[in-house]
Structures are given as C-alpha cells and as structure tokens.
Simulated assay, not measured.
Amino acid sequence: MRKAILAAIAVGLPVPVIAELVSFDCIYFTACTKGVECGSANFDLIFRLDTTANKAFVVGNNGLSEVGAYRGASGITFLEMLGSGAVQSTTVASDGSSSHSRNTIIAGTLTASQYVGNCDVGETR
C-alpha cells in the first residue's frame, strides 16, 4: 500500500478520499557532518501531507509547522525554510529510501549535516 500511495502522490494522481492525510515516518541511521566522517545516527522525522488541501507539515516538539512539498515522478521533497535563511530538505523516493539535509546557521556560521535512512509511508486517519 505504501508504494501505491507514494507513487500516486509523486505523479499527481488523486489519492483515495480515505487517504486525506498521508504520513511519512522517517528514521535516519547514517549521518555525515561538515568536516567529520560519516557515522551511525538515530534521528527521526515525521511529515504529514494533506492531499485534500495540498499542504505539508513537519511534526516537531512544538506541534506542526508547515513546509513546502515538491512532488515529482519518483518521489517527494519537503522543504523547511528557517528564519535564519537556511533551508532543510528531506527527499523520499518511491521505494521509501530517504535523505535529509540539515543546513543550520548558528551565530552566522553554517553547520551542515546529511542523514540517510528510510520512511514508512501510509495513511493517517
């Protein structure tokens, strides 16, 4: 079911009415940071895509924050614009594989990291 939902979203086909809210529950197990070797990670991200309103949200410690979503033929990318001017992006391929790029500016200095993992995609009711 996960592949069918993600494939329909990716190509812009209507998702069944019951799937008004699609959940992307992502777990990242590898991390690479600027100037540091890659290593293991245990990092989770949750996205919700409202296919009726055509809006996307990231679920955080303070609730939901709206993010941009770009749907393509083979997956979806979520973009979070930060007040600092940095952008964080998460791409989920149709097979559920995912990469999250975290670009954060702290005190005027860029801190960059890349995470690799997988997302479970399904309906949220």
Rank of each mutant, 00 (worst) to 15 (best):
I105L: 08
E66F: 08
N118Q: 14
S40T: 08
V92C: 04
V17K: 09
D50A: 02
G60Q: 05
S113I: 02
T77H: 07
D44I: 12
P16F: 06
D95P: 04
S98T: 03
K3C: 09
V15W: 03
T51F: 01
S113F: 03
N103D: 10
R71N: 08
G12A: 04
R125E: 10
V15G: 09
N62P: 05
V36L: 06
E20P: 00
E37D: 10
A19Y: 04
R48A: 10
G72E: 13
T77F: 08
T104R: 11
K34T: 03
S98Q: 02
A31C: 09
A8C: 04
V11C: 06
A73V: 12
A41M: 01
N42C: 04
L82I: 02
P16K: 08
G60F: 01
C38F: 01
T124W: 03
L64W: 05
T104I: 15
L21C: 00
G63S: 11
H100E: 07
I9P: 00
S99L: 12
D25S: 11
G35W: 01
G85M: 08
I46K: 15
D120R: 13
N61Q: 13
T111C: 06
Y115N: 03
V15C: 08
G75Q: 05
L21E: 01
T52Q: 03
S23V: 06
V92N: 07
A107C: 00
P16I: 06
A31T: 11
A10G: 08
F29I: 12
N62A: 15
A7V: 00
T124N: 11
L110P: 07
T109A: 14
L45D: 15
I105M: 09
F29N: 14
V67T: 11
T124H: 06
T33Q: 10
Y70G: 08
V15K: 05
S113V: 01
V59C: 05
V36Y: 01
G60T: 14
G72Y: 14
L49I: 02
F43S: 11
S113W: 02
A73M: 10
G96C: 04
M1N: 09
F29A: 11
G96F: 02
